[in-house]
């Protein structure tokens, strides 16, 4: 039983990180209608910044704040200068720009801070003794910390989109930018804000996941996170924050359990198994579990 619980906790923790990144992707999609493929590498860049600040003496929470602020700035600037001008063209243009940013940010991080693996301090107490026992299994504080952050984030995002004026404006811009502009919504600022918020969320994901990662802080840390997060966002429905979180948790837990218990698939086909399940779900719900079906006028 304790092994099962430990695997479950691992799965939920992994899943929570995927969920946070997926939330960032959903925020971008809900505000501007595209997917930011470079979200992971932008988060990596800000995480390196946070790490660097800890090496010059600042505590990690200050580094995390700096990372969040930088993430916001980066997101807003990228949206204004690179994404907005070409958005109207087609999906593919934004995708290529995102691919370019993906390559550039990764290389920039490597350039500024070299590609050696760096141990990353955790925001939560992370010693070997920092856990509390649950039915024989150990629940570590830093894992619990990540879960709480996800809960706080989903509450925050939900509140933002459904209960605040800003959220209403964001939804309006995503739905029909022209009408929104005619109604007095400052569309430009809203778009920047959307990407900026996603930047903060992404940075948070980076700072949270790196201390728990096998490769700590290295140039390859965020790529698989992005893959799983994209799958989670799509699985849950690109315009649904709740879906993103459910998707992320589902993928994390599925992966942990399949790897642990299904030996035939387990050790060698974890990503395949998780993605196959998602594909099957998409076959029955083509816009994701919680996504809204699109109505198109001809």
């Amino acid at each position: 039983m304790d092994i099962f619980l430990e695997r479950l906790f691992d799965g939920v923790t992994n899943g929570a990180v995927y969920a946070i990144m997926a939330l960032a992707l959903v925020v971008v999609f809900r505000s501007t209608g595209t997917i930011n493929f470079a979200q992971g590498e932008m988060a990596l860049f800000t995480t390196y910044l946070a790490w660097w600040l800890t090496t010059v003496g600042l505590p990690i929470w200050a580094g995390a704040l700096a990372a969040g602020a930088t993430g916001f700035l980066l997101g807003a600037v990228v949206e204004r200068t690179l994404i907005r001008p070409i958005r109207r063209r087609n999906d593919m243009a934004s995708l290529i720009v995102a691919l370019g940013l993906f390559t550039a940010f990764n290389a920039l991080a490597g350039l500024l801070w070299n590609s050696e693996t760096k141990p990353m301090p955790s925001l939560f107490p992370a010693g070997l003794e920092d856990f509390f026992p649950v039915a024989g299994a150990r629940l570590y504080w830093d894992a619990l910390g990540v879960w709480l952050v996800v809960l706080a984030l989903i509450a925050g995002v939900f509140f933002l989109f459904n209960r605040t004026r800003l959220g209403l404006q964001m939804r309006a811009v995503a739905d029909n930018a022209e009408s929104a502009a005619l109604s007095g919504v400052p569309t430009g600022r809203i778009l920047m804000l959307g990407w900026g918020l996603a930047g903060i969320v992404g940075s948070l994901a980076g700072v949270l996941v790196t201390p728990l990662s096998a490769t700590q802080l290295s140039l390859t840390t965020m790529f698989p996170i992005l893959i799983y997060a994209s799958a989670a966002a799509l699985f849950g429905g690109l315009d649904s924050p709740v879906g993103a979180v459910v998707g992320g948790l589902a993928i994390g837990v599925l992966e942990a359990l399949i790897t642990g218990y299904v030996e035939f698939i387990g050790g060698t086909l974890p990503q395949t198994a998780a993605l196959v399940v998602i594909v099957l779900i998409l076959l029955f719900r083509p816009t994701g579990l919680f996504g809204t079906r699109q109505l198109e006028r001809l």
Binding site: I35, D91, A231, L238, L269, L275, I278, V279, L282, L283
Partner: peptide
């Protein structure tokens, strides 16, 4: 085949699954 039901970025996810699965299946 999934393209019959699934479209756009969601279809891209299906292709992503195929792309990710291939090296794993080869290793298996």
């Amino acid at each position: 085949l999934p393209a019959l039901r699934i479209r756009g970025l969601y279809l891209a996810l299906v292709t992503l699954a195929v792309g990710v699965a291939f090296p794993e299946v080869v290793r298996r």
